[in-house]
Structure formats: structure tokens, C-alpha cells
Design a protein around this nucleic acid. Sequence first.
DNA 1: CTAGGTGCTAGAGCGCACTCTAGGTCAAGC
DNA 2: GCTTGACCTAGAGTGCGCTCTAGCACCTAG
Lengths: 131, 131
Amino acid sequence: MMIGEVAEKSGFSVHTLRYYEKIGLLPPSHRDSGGRRSFDDDVLRWLEFLGRLKDLGMPIRDRVLYARMRAEGDSTIEARRNLLQTYRDELAVRVASLTETLEVLDAKIASYDTTGSPSTEPRYDQDTIHP
Amino acid sequence: MMIGEVAEKSGFSVHTLRYYEKIGLLPPSHRDSGGRRSFDDDVLRWLEFLGRLKDLGMPIRDRVLYARMRAEGDSTIEARRNLLQTYRDELAVRVASLTETLEVLDAKIASYDTTGSPSTEPRYDQDTIHP
DNA sequence: CTAGGTGCTAGAGCGCACTCTAGGTCAAGC
DNA sequence: GCTTGACCTAGAGTGCGCTCTAGCACCTAG
């Protein structure tokens, strides 16, 4: 697989993939005779996982740290577990908070709807009440 | 309330609060005789809501747009509702995806635990399996 | 009456995570 | 054999969202 195909399948841009390799998120890739990167399918699963780590808010330096430890092998399993555990716990908190935000938004949208419909009814800006 | 107290209660820094006023997230504040900003308690609820919009990933320019519309009054209710609805729907998708990520992490952490405990057992790096 | 703390402005600076540019190489199809 | 398009490198540039600096004003407590 050349880099363009990986980009298309993973959703990361070609530029980003090269950048990821440069900073160590991807292992140094094999090259074909012409010096072009040649990836195998594994990289797609790894990129999908990296995408999840990114989406949950893990900063790139910790993704790099994780990637480096992964490349080092079994001796780093404990540290990797701990790193993931930390972000997992943080994520659980964030999911709870975002779920609450979802409720807040639904309430607010509902209040806008009530306020908005009948223009003969008294209007009030819910923003002044909640906030 | 002076700006320091707002900072302490809201969790935003003094610098950030002034910045928020400058870009229009906060209305131009009242000043005391010495030219210092004087806030009333409402601002805390507004900041809390802004914090939620921020946390759910609404970029600052849309928060500014929302704030400006809010300042304009009832004529913008429909537009505000639509804006919130858009981000609400996006958020619902993200919450679902993050919940999935939580499961992925739990599975991975569990696999690390199994791999790690008995050092007499065969070890395998789960990373080569998933992902 | 003075020292320290908090406030003010304008504007520069920063860290993050890309994203793009310039100037090239290479391989496959016409 | 030449064009086209995907690839290469090093390094500069970008947008976001703050964050900090310099240099000054004010106010309150000792």
C-alpha cells in the first residue's frame, strides 16, 4: 500500500501521515525501490486506534509516548496500561459531562421552541433565565 | 464583583476574561470610578454555559456568533436555536463515539492485565492483535 | 504617606497539531 | 521517450485559543 491509499482509507491526509511518521507515531516505514513508503494493512488498525486516542483528547506527545513504548515491546506493557487507564478515567468523566451538556442543550432548545412559536404569546428570552 | 473574583469563581483566568470581552463573548462590562470592570452574578451562569459550548467543541467564532445574537435579542432566537441544534446533534454523535472508545479502552486494558499477570504464562502483545 | 496588591491597555508570544511549499525523483501509460 | 501524476525531503506557514509582557493607574491597609 502506498501512502495515498493509506490516506484515503484512514482519513488522515498524506501530509499528516508523513508528519506522524516523522514524530514517531508511525514506525519508520519500509520503502520500495524508488524510496517510496510501503505500508501493510496493520497500519490502518493502528491509525484507527490513534484516531480514537486523538478524539478522546490525548495530546500528541502522549500518543507518541504510547507509540514508542509499543514499539519497544512487552517490557512497557505496564506503563502502557497505566497511560491508557489514566485517559480512560478522564474520558469517563468527560462523557458524563458531555451527556449532561446534551441535556442542557435539549432543555434550552425546547425552551426556544416554546418561546418561538406563537408570536401572540408573551415572549421571554430564556437566556436571561438560564443563562 | 471585580474580575479577579469572576476568574476564581468561573475557572477562567483574568487574562481570558478580558480576552473574551474583547472578542465579544462577554458584553462590554460596566466600569467603576477607577475604570475597573464590575460584573454582576449573571456573568457566572453565562460563563458556565460558554464553558459547556467550549467543551463540546464549538469553535470560538461560533461562540462569538451566538453571544452576539444573544445580545441582539429576541429576533435572533430562531437562528440561535438552529445553531445549538447543529452542535447538539454533532455532540450526540461524539458522545456515542466516545462511549465506544471507552469500551475499546476497557477491553484493551483488560487484555493488558491478562497479558501481564503470570510471567510464567505465554505473553503476547495485544497491540499486534487489536490493533 | 507609602507599599503592595489588584486593576488597566495594547500588543507580542506561545504551544499545538497540523498543512503547505519548493524543488525535486520516479514509474507507468501513451 | 516523454508526459503525467503520485511520491519524496526539509522546512516554512497557519489557525486556534489563549497567555503573557510592559508600563502604568488606582485603592486600601498599616
